[in-house]
Simulated assay, not measured.
Amino acid sequence: MKVKIKVGKVEVTAELDESLAPKTIEAIKKALPIKSTANRWGDEVYFHTNVNVSVEENSKEVVEVGDVAYWIPGKAICLFFGKTPISDDKIRPASAVNVIGKILDDPTVLKEVKDGDEVLVFEVESQ
């Protein structure tokens, strides 16, 4: 399933992989379109959602550039494009996240995102 994520003036497409976290992605699908407000934490953009998932699926404490994840404690979707404030030689989220997919475009465009930018997430038709 592909989604378009618009954050301020930046737009990326992400592929959500249902084999990674089926319950999490099903809950996100039901919540689309999602409108929210962006937050930055180092080279991570995250935004709160009304998605309520309590099950850890594909939960990871280390992620990769371009990963899209759901953070259970914050009910937030996270977009990773570099190191967070607690990263060492690896990219570390605040706590374990359910990795749900990958950004298909260059994730470093997210460096332009500022706290408070409007976020819109919606499904796009697969080609």
Rank of each mutant, 00 (worst) to 15 (best):
A27P: 07
T13R: 13
P85M: 04
A76T: 02
V68E: 07
G8W: 01
I77M: 06
I100C: 02
S87V: 13
P93F: 10
L120M: 13
K90C: 02
T24Q: 07
K111Q: 10
D106A: 04
D88E: 14
L120V: 15
S19D: 11
R40C: 10
I28P: 05
Y70L: 08
K114P: 01
K9N: 15
D105R: 02
K4M: 12
A21K: 11
K111R: 15
Q127S: 14
A76S: 15
E125G: 11
V62R: 13
A38N: 08
T49Y: 07
G42E: 03
Q127G: 13
T108H: 06
H48Y: 06
V55S: 13
E44T: 03
V113Y: 02
Y46Q: 05
K60Q: 15
E18L: 13
W41S: 05
E26M: 08
E44H: 11
F122P: 00
L20S: 09
D106T: 07
G66W: 01
M1W: 07
D105V: 00
E44Q: 15
L104W: 07
P107T: 01
D117H: 04
E61Q: 06
S36N: 07
F47R: 09
K60N: 12
E18S: 15
V51H: 11
D88I: 12
N58R: 04
K114M: 06
I5M: 09
C78G: 04
V119L: 12
N58T: 01
G116K: 03
E61C: 05
K29I: 10
A14M: 08
T108D: 02
K23T: 02
V99W: 00
I77K: 11
I100G: 05
E15M: 10
D43G: 03
C78Y: 00
G101M: 05
D115C: 01
A69C: 06
G74S: 10
L79A: 10
E57Y: 08
L110P: 05
F47K: 02
N50F: 05
E18F: 13
Y46R: 07
M1A: 11
D115Q: 03
W71Y: 14
L16R: 04
V62M: 08
E26Q: 14
G82I: 08
K30R: 15
P93R: 08
S87E: 12
E56M: 13
V121K: 10
D17K: 14
G74T: 09
K23L: 08
T84S: 13
I5S: 09
D43I: 04
K35Y: 14
T49H: 11
K6A: 11
E26I: 04
P85R: 03
A14N: 12
D43K: 15
A94K: 12
Y70D: 08
V119Q: 14
N39H: 11
L120P: 03
N58A: 03
H48F: 06
N39T: 09
L20K: 15
N52L: 14
I91A: 00
K114H: 01
E26D: 11
L79G: 10
D89A: 12
K90I: 00
T13F: 12
G101F: 02
S59Q: 07
I25N: 07
K9W: 07
V68C: 04
I100A: 09
I34T: 00
G82H: 01
E112S: 09
I77W: 03
V62L: 12
L20I: 08
M1S: 08
E118I: 09
K30P: 03
I86L: 06
E56R: 15
E118F: 06
S95W: 14
L16F: 11
N52F: 10
